[in-house]
């Protein structure tokens, strides 16, 4: 699991690559922690190469969303494949995230 954080067009972009299973949760969470400090910017989560996500990963996403909303930012997810999308649908996360 590889997580890259960069700034693009005035947004914070997190590029997630690989399987975000429970084992990968701690490192991923650590890598994405800067996003929690973002204020006034939108966060874009690039899931183009995200193959797999577990409930631990969902929790990270939710954490980021809550933090951004609290600071007035928005979170957008891009490039989610069908499998991951199905998971979002199953859990109702599909309703609380915006997709681009």
């Amino acid at each position: 699991m590889k997580t890259t954080i960069q700034e693009q067009d005035g947004n914070m972009v997190a590029i997630l690559e690989g399987s975000l299973d429970t084992a990968a949760v701690p490192e991923t969470e650590a890598a994405m922690s800067p996003l929690l400090d973002v204020a006034g910017k939108d966060i874009i989560l690039d899931c183009t190469d995200l193959q797999y996500i577990s409930s631990g990963g969902l929790r990270i996403f939710l954490g980021i969303l809550k933090s951004a909303q609290a600071k007035g930012g928005q979170v957008f997810i891009t490039g989610m494949n069908n499998d991951v999308r199905a998971v979002f649908a199953m859990t109702g996360f599909i309703n609380i995230f915006k997709f681009k």
Binding site: S55, L58, R59, L62, K66, Q69, T91, G92, N95
Partner: peptide, 24 residues
């Protein structure tokens, strides 16, 4: 059961795993 209709703010952190298991 997890209430998937709750907003993000209202959603608790836990309980998702089992929900997924039940769903799948």
């Amino acid at each position: 059961e997890v209430d998937t209709t709750l907003s993000a703010l209202e959603r608790p952190i836990g309980g998702l795993g089992i929900h997924l298991v039940r769903q799948i």
